[in-house]
Design a binder for these strands. Structure first.
Length: 501
RNA sequence: GGCCCGGUGGUCAAGCGGCUAAGACACCGCCCUUUCACGGCGGUAACACGGGUUCGAUUCCCGUCCGGGUCACCA
């Protein structure tokens, strides 16, 4: 089995040099974890900050999934978040293909190369035998029985068609690897198992495929979750075995979830029903708000912008330094995300907000006569997320069956009696208005309050309750009357007076 | 359990030997006001613990405790 070195040389020749290259390598699962999104963001930021390339690679070695849709979810999420890629399955690039299942032939050849170098070996041990080993000692590593097979024995087994895996041969000693966030970490190689590189079905394990692909794609900075920290030494050993340059490792502490329902903090996971990026969008969170918030979950700006919290993508690219990544896990806090989203919502122009809000308003406001833009204007400063909207505007279509007790409000100095009087006074004023505009209604009612020598609230409160039937509404009496229209306003006021009789 | 990593208010966090230990969210007051918001002002609240090193430790070292990760023919 001669090795065709020419082929390897050609692969090497394709690798770009002299620029920062990072990659995001998701498995197409159909949704994007918040933690994954953050990893993607940091990876992208490192590339952009350095003026380098950002690559998208799909790790789909897990077959039996409807990959097509899931990959689309990844594309859509990245696009909505502004994470543009320079190379990837759809746009191609110099070191493709960018889908792992399309690269499966590569790995075997590289594993073979490792065998030649004496850094890997075939293992014919059956699953049963391995289980036995574990039964004797749950913590047992592979006992390397197949390492001592002679060339003849191996050939005989090969000829007999015995299935085998290829294992990495971990050398003696200890391994030190450097992480840009965690610093130098040294482990005793005795702790490391002779991990499997190629499975008996011929496909590579995740760890092996990762190393090979990262090298062949010229990745200079590997950004990943801290859950991979303990397998990092094995990566180093693999790079060393190949004689490849080790990329810069950037491990990011995991994202925890601060569950407001239970008050507990735990690792964020879809399994527990913690929100994914898709869930958040469906709940009416803006991508930019989510991205901005997530950027700060485990990273903080330094220097003269250490206190800055709101960033445009351009500002993030400029500010993002690896040194700012934190070592300790951070909890995803819905309250803080709400704050970010509310702020982004308020910064939208009235037109933009109206466009975003429209579908949510229409969930409960079906009457086409009501102006959604006007309603949206009332909502912009009053919701943290778009999904807050439907409940807030439900009184437009149907006046709730409210309790007369609502007419009583201490601060506004109203009770049932006062309210009835106010409505009686306000009714003819509004009825007599020639123009049903915001100003006309406002001036009419404020003028009346002045005439009656009562504070504005004493008059406004009953009117608002009568027309909205709710204690809390977006906007005040004037705005609501204006949107409801004159006829509906008067009708509701009359109903209010009847209730109070 | 072995190994690895981490530990500043409830949460996100700045700090990188000397500070009254920033700032933000949340919370609580007050102001504004046509309810609620928005906005403005103010407040409560932290260096896990014990040893060192040092003139001096939140900062450096060790231990304890606590939390997380990892020990697959899964990624």
């Amino acid at each position: 089995m001669a090795i065709d070195m020419k082929w390897f040389d050609e692969m090497e020749a394709r690798i770009p040099h002299g620029e920062v290259r990072t990659r995001f390598a998701p498995s197409p699962t159909g949704y994007m974890h918040v933690g994954n999104l953050r990893t993607a963001l940091y990876t992208w930021l490192i590339a952009r900050h350095a003026g380098g390339k950002f690559i998208l690679r799909i790790e789909d070695t897990d077959q039996g999934r409807l990959v097509a849709d899931a990959v689309d979810v990844i594309y859509a999420t990245m696009r909505r978040c502004g994470l543009t890629w320079d190379e990837g399955p759809d746009v191609g690039g110099p070191v493709g293909p960018y889908i792992q299942t399309q690269r499966r032939d590569l790995y075997g050849k590289y594993a073979q190369l490792l065998i030649e170098k004496g850094c890997a070996y075939r293992c014919f041990c059956t699953e049963e035998r391995l289980e036995e080993l574990r039964r004797d000692d749950p913590n047992a590593k592979y006992d390397r029985r197949c390492l001592s097979l002679t060339a003849e024995e191996i050939q005989a087994k090969l000829d007999a068609g015995e299935p085998y895996v290829i294992r990495q041969r971990i050398p003696e000693g200890s391994t030190t690897f450097h992480d840009a966030v965690y610093g130098d970490i040294t482990v005793d190689n005795a702790e490391l198992d002779d991990q499997i590189l190629i499975k008996s079905d011929g496909l590579p394990t995740y760890n092996f495929a990762n190393v090979v692909d990262d090298h062949l794609m010229g990745i200079t900075h590997v950004v990943r979750g801290a859950e991979y920290l303990s397998s990092a030494p094995k990566y180093n050993l693999l790079y060393e075995a190949f004689g490849w340059e080790v990329p810069t490792y950037i491990h990011c502490a995991s994202v925890m979830f601060n569950d407001p329902a239970t008050g507990t903090v735990r690792k964020m996971s879809k399994r527990h029903g913690d929100p994914s990026y898709q869930d958040l969008v469906a709940q009416g969170y803006l991508s930019q708000a989510v991205v901005n918030y997530v950027a700060l979950l485990g990273w903080a700006p330094h220097g003269d912008i250490a206190e800055q919290e709101f960033f445009t993508m351009d500002e993030l690219v400029k500010a993002f330094e690896i040194e700012g990544i934190s070592k300790s896990p951070s909890a995803f806090d819905m309250d803080k995300l709400n704050y970010f989203n509310a702020t982004y919502l308020r910064e939208l122009s009235p037109e933009e907000f109206a466009r975003e809000a429209q579908p949510w308003i229409r969930r409960t406001v079906k009457n086409p006569a009501y102006d959604t833009a006007a309603i949206a204007a009332l909502l912009q400063a009053r919701c943290e997320k778009l999904s807050d909207i439907p409940e807030k505007v439900d009184f437009f279509d149907a006046l709730p069956d409210y309790d007369v007790a609502l007419f009583t409000n201490k601060k506004s100095k109203t009770n049932g009696e006062v309210s009835l009087e106010m409505l009686k006074q306000a009714y003819p004023v509004l009825e007599g208005l020639g123009c049903w505009s915001q100003d006309a209604i406002h001036d009419g009612l404020v003028g009346l309050a002045e005439t009656l020598s009562v504070k504005n609230a004493t008059l406004m409160w009953p009117v608002r309750i009568a027309v909205a039937g709710k204690a809390v509404t977006p906007g005040g009496a004037v705005e609501i009357c204006r949107i409801l229209g004159k006829d509906e306003t008067l009708r509701r006021m009359k109903l209010g007076m009847e209730k109070l009789q």
